[in-house]
Simulated assay, not measured.
Amino acid sequence: MELAAKTRLLLDRLRGGARATGQRLLPAAEAPPGEKPEFLPNFCTGEVVFNVVVVAEMLAIVINLIIPRNFLATTAWKDLLLISIFIQWVALAGTAVLCYTRKYLNRLPNLQALGAAYLLLLLTTFVVSECVVWLLWALGRLNSTRPAWYADFHIINLTISAIINGLLLRLFLAKHELQSRTLSEARARLQALQSRIRPHFVFNSLNIIASLTRSEPEKAEAAIEDMADLFRMMLSQDEMLVPVKNEIDVTKKYLALEALRLDNRLTVNWDIGKFPRKAVMPVLTLQPLLENAIRHGIEELPGGGAIDVRLWEDSDRIHIRVANPLPKTRPKKAKSTPGQSLDNIRQRFQSHYGEQAALTSAEENGLFTVTVVLPIRGDNL
C-alpha cells in the first residue's frame, strides 16, 4: 500500500474515532450541552449533617439561657434536654427532606428551587411541632390536642425556623458556590495544562513520521498505522481520568512510534503490578514521562539505552517510577534539563489532586529517576 493511501487511512481512522465518541470535544470550561449545574448543595453528606446538629444544639442552649428562671435550679438541665431533643428533631427532619428532594429541586430554576427548599423547611418545622403536640397528648401530658398555647407554640417555632433556616441556607449555598467555582477553576487549569501537552505530542509524532518518510518509507507506513490507532484511542477517551491499563496502552503505542525512529537504540523494560478496577489516573500521565526520558536521555546517547518503567499499587496509592540513563557530558546550549521538563506534569497533578500527589526526580550515578505517587481514585475532580 502506498504512503498516500496510508495517510488517507490515518484520516479515516481519526474521523471514525471522533464519531465513536458521540460528541465533539468541548473547550476546557464549557459544560456538556443541556447539563444544568446543581444549584443546591448535597444535604446528605456527613459534613452537612454534623454542621446542622452543631447549630441546632447551639440554638437549644441559647433558648434555654433566655428562659426566665433560676439557672442553678435542676429544671434548667431538664429543659435543655427537652429543648435539644425537639430542635434536633426539627433540624434532622428538615435535612432529610432536603436530602431526598434535592434532585427534584435542582431541576427547577434557581430562585424557585431556593423558595421551594425554604418552604419545605418551614413545613417540616410545622409537621414536627404538630407531632410533638399529639405525642404529648397520647402520653397523657395534655388534656387536648389544642391547648391554650397551641397557636403561640407554632408561631414561635415557625418564626425561629424562618430566621435560622434562612441563614443556614444562605451559608450552605455560599459554601457550595465557592466549592463549585474552585472546582471549575481547577478543571480549567488542568485542561489548560493538558492542552499544552496534547499539541506537543501530536507535533512530535508527525515529526517522527516526517523523519522516516524518505529514508525508510516502510517504517513510515507502519508509523502512520500506529499513529492512527493511537489517536483513535485518545479521541475515544474524553474523560480526564482513565483506567491505568488504558494509559499504559496509549504509552506503548507512543513508544512504538519512537522505536521506529530510534531503531535498536531504544529499549523499554516494563514492570507492571496488578491494579484494581477503580485505579485511574489523568490522561497522558505516562507518555510525557517516557518522552522526557527519551528526549533527555536516550536521544543524547550514541548507543541509546534502556528505560525502566515500574508501576505498582501500595496503600491505595499508584506508584510510578521511570529511570533512564543520562549522557556523561551535556551540551552547554541545552535549553532545558530533565527536571525542568517535568514542571507541566507536576502542575497537572497539583491542580488535580492537590497535596495528595507527588512528583520527585533524582539524578545519581548517571541515572535519572522520576517517581510519581497518585491517589488510586480521582475523587477531587
Rank of each mutant, 00 (worst) to 15 (best):
G115M: 14
M1D: 05
I66N: 05
S215H: 14
P41T: 03
S161H: 02
L193T: 04
D79E: 14
P41A: 03
S215P: 00
S161W: 01
D226G: 02
R310D: 08
I163K: 05
L206F: 15
E299I: 11
Q347V: 01
G34H: 10
K274N: 14
I345A: 06
N344S: 11
L80I: 05
P338S: 05
N106M: 14
A60T: 06
L111W: 14
D379M: 07
L301T: 06
L10A: 03
L262K: 06
T125K: 08
Q347R: 13
P199S: 13
L26H: 09
A357T: 01
C99M: 08
I87L: 09
C131G: 12
L136A: 13
P147E: 09
N292C: 09
S215L: 10
L173D: 01
P325E: 02
L342R: 01
D379S: 13
M227W: 13
D314Q: 15
V322I: 09
T45L: 11
M1Q: 04
Q356H: 10
R146V: 10
Y100I: 10
E35N: 07
S144K: 05
Q347K: 12
A323L: 07
V280H: 15
P37Q: 10
R181K: 08
D249E: 15
S341K: 01
P109W: 14
K253Q: 08
I164E: 01
S236K: 12
A31G: 04
K78N: 04
Y100E: 07
D308V: 11
Q88M: 12
K328E: 14
T360A: 15
N157W: 01
E185P: 00
A223V: 02
V283I: 15
L183F: 04
P302W: 15
R348W: 00
D379L: 08
L326E: 03
L262A: 07
G305H: 05
F201P: 00
A5I: 05
L11I: 02
E364I: 09
H154A: 07
A116C: 13
F172M: 03
K6P: 00
L121F: 12
P327I: 01
A358R: 14
S315F: 14
V244L: 14
A306I: 15
R261E: 04
P282F: 15
K274L: 08
R317T: 13
I197V: 12
K78P: 04
A151H: 02
K278M: 12
L59R: 03
L167F: 12
T45R: 09
K78F: 08
R19K: 11
N324H: 01
S341A: 15
A31P: 02
K328T: 04
L122V: 10
A228C: 07
T21P: 00
